Computed example of a mutant assay.
Amino acid sequence: MSNVPLIFQPLVKYVDFQGRARRSEFWLWVLLRIVVGMVMGTVITTVMFSGMNFQHPDPSQFMGRYFTVMPLLQIVNLGLLLPSIAVAVRRLHDTNRSGWWYIMPIVVAIVGVVLFFIFAGTQLFSAIGTGEGTMTDAQGMKLFFTVMGSMFLFVFLPVLVAEIVMLVFYVSDGTPGANRFGPDPKGRGVMETPEVMF
């Protein structure tokens, strides 16, 4: 496995959630995912628009090509999903953090969406619950800005903070020497027996 270039290590450790991954392994994998996405996007766009008559476009031809090539992109994305999660978990392990931190932005997003719908729903029902059935332009604008503000407050801002926290974790140097998840991938210190696997 040591002969495999670092950028392809996550493919070799496809669903390996144990151990640690150094920063270079994680960020080279992120770079590879971006390059693969750009290549796939270029190929799919070329296939979808090649031979199209833009003077008299045929939407059915475009949609037919769309539904032909998009499954290919989704298959590639699904194929790269598990190694992406695994290398992120191992990167967290390198900083002596549990892999469960990986789902923190997802949990924050779900809680934020639930709170947003509760708040926005109450605002909407209170605005139209007057019995008149119509709103003035000023009331409509006030409702719009209230809903958009609550979306920012409950969803976008917490998710942004959660993603910044995860970014700090991912760019942090790993624990020097062995930690509870295994030996230092940089070879610093001596190996200890891992206590926690996820």
Rank of each mutant, 00 (worst) to 15 (best):
M52D: 12
S24P: 11
V12F: 08
P10C: 11
T45L: 15
V43P: 01
M40G: 09
P71G: 04
R33T: 12
L6I: 05
R20T: 10
D58V: 12
R23K: 04
R20D: 05
V36Q: 07
K13D: 12
D58T: 12
M52R: 01
Y66F: 02
M70S: 01
L6R: 04
R23A: 07
Q9E: 11
M70Q: 05
W29L: 03
T45Y: 15
D16P: 01
G64H: 00
T45M: 15
F17G: 15
Y66A: 00
V47D: 06
L31W: 00
V15K: 13
Q61Y: 12
T42Y: 13
L72R: 01
V39F: 02
F67M: 05
N3H: 07
L11I: 14
D58K: 06
R20C: 13
M40A: 05
G19L: 02
D16T: 06
W29E: 04
N77M: 09
S60Q: 14
S2T: 05
F67D: 04
E25D: 15
L6D: 00
I7E: 03
V43K: 07
V35R: 01
L6M: 07
F26G: 00
V35L: 06
V47M: 05
M70L: 08
M63Q: 09
M48Y: 02
V12E: 07
S60G: 14
F67G: 05
F62R: 03
F54M: 12
V12A: 10
V12L: 13
S24E: 15
S60V: 11
G79F: 10
F8A: 03
N3M: 11
F8M: 08
V4N: 04
V36W: 11
S50K: 12
V15S: 14
V43Y: 09
D58C: 11
S2W: 08
I75C: 11
I44S: 01
G64Y: 08
S60D: 10
R33S: 10
N3V: 14
Q61F: 06
T42K: 14
L78Q: 03
V47P: 01
Q61N: 09
P59D: 09
